[in-house]
Structure formats: structure tokens, C-alpha cells
Design a protein around this nucleic acid. Structure first.
Length: 121
DNA sequence: AGAATGACGCTGA
DNA sequence: TTCAGCGCCATTC
């Protein structure tokens, strides 16, 4: 905790997550890749786990590549909070914790007018 | 020092 | 489509 340097892995993750626009979702692998830690999706999960609540970081917008909330007993219910926050963001969450990730995927640098706005057929 | 863990990702069946 | 196993890499004991 003494190290409050912006070079910390956690700091980079939190910083990036803060830049996720409301109503959009990002995956751990996506975050890891953006911070230059390709393949370190797990480390991103730890960074969020160490995140103090309440926090100004929209960690609830970060989900796994499967597009579902990681419901693990380790969080003691924080996963449940995530679902509530996502619903508040306007993102429908399935009863199993699955989200339409394909439709809410956050694309850094992408504009609303981009063709990637919707993957609709 | 080494071994075990884990809010993940991908491939195969 | 869903379920299971293996691999990646930093943190923790």
C-alpha cells in the first residue's frame, strides 16, 4: 500500500476501468491487453478484488470473456452487487448472470457512429 | 526459495 | 449449445 505509484498494476487497471463509458462492458482480457499485460486476465481480476468498496471505479463493468458475472463465493455477494449496478446501467442481466456482451462491448477509441456499434445481423 | 492459489481465456468433446 | 480440462502469470503463504 505504500506504493502509490501510478506504475502499479492495480493502478493501471483501475485507471482503465474508470475510462469505461456508462452502459458499456469490458472483459478482463481486454483490460489486460490494454495495459500491456496480454494473457494476464487473471491479474486484472485480482486488481479488482483488491479494490476497496465503495470505489469510484466502475469495476462492475468488467466481466469475463464469456460475458457473465464471476459468481464466486470469494466475493461474499459483491457479485450480486455487480448485477444490480449493471441493471442500473441499462444492461440486462440474465438470471444466470450472463450479459449481452456482444452488444455492450467497450471499444476504446471507437466512436458511436462506428460500424461496430451493433453486431446485429 | 518453492508451492499453491485465482473476480480468466481458449480449445476440445 | 453447454461442460470440462489445460495454460498464462502475478500475488500470497
Amino acid at each position: 500500500m505504500d506504493r502509490e505509484q501510478t506504475c502499479s498494476f492495480d493502478q493501471r487497471v483501475w485507471r482503465l476501468v474508470e475510462q469505461i463509458p456508462r452502459g458499456q462492458l469490458a472483459t478482463y482480457g481486454q483490460i489486460a491487453e490494454l495495459i500491456g499485460a496480454w494473457g494476464c486476465a487473471r491479474q486484472v481480476g485480482w486488481a479488482l478484488r483488491r479494490l476497496p468498496l465503495p470505489s469510484a471505479v466502475p469495476w462492475h463493468r468488467v466481466v469475463n470473456a464469456r460475458g457473465c458475472i464471476a459468481m464466486t463465493p470469494s466475493r461474499e455477494g459483491s457479485d450480486w452487487i455487480q448485477r444490480e449496478l449493471l441493471l442500473a446501467e441499462g444492461i440486462p442481466v440474465d438470471g444466470a448472470g450472463r450479459l449481452p456482451l456482444a452488444r455492450f462491448r467497450w471499444q476504446p477509441g471507437a466512436r458511436c457512429g462506428a460500424s461496430a456499434c451493433d453486431a446485429g445481423p
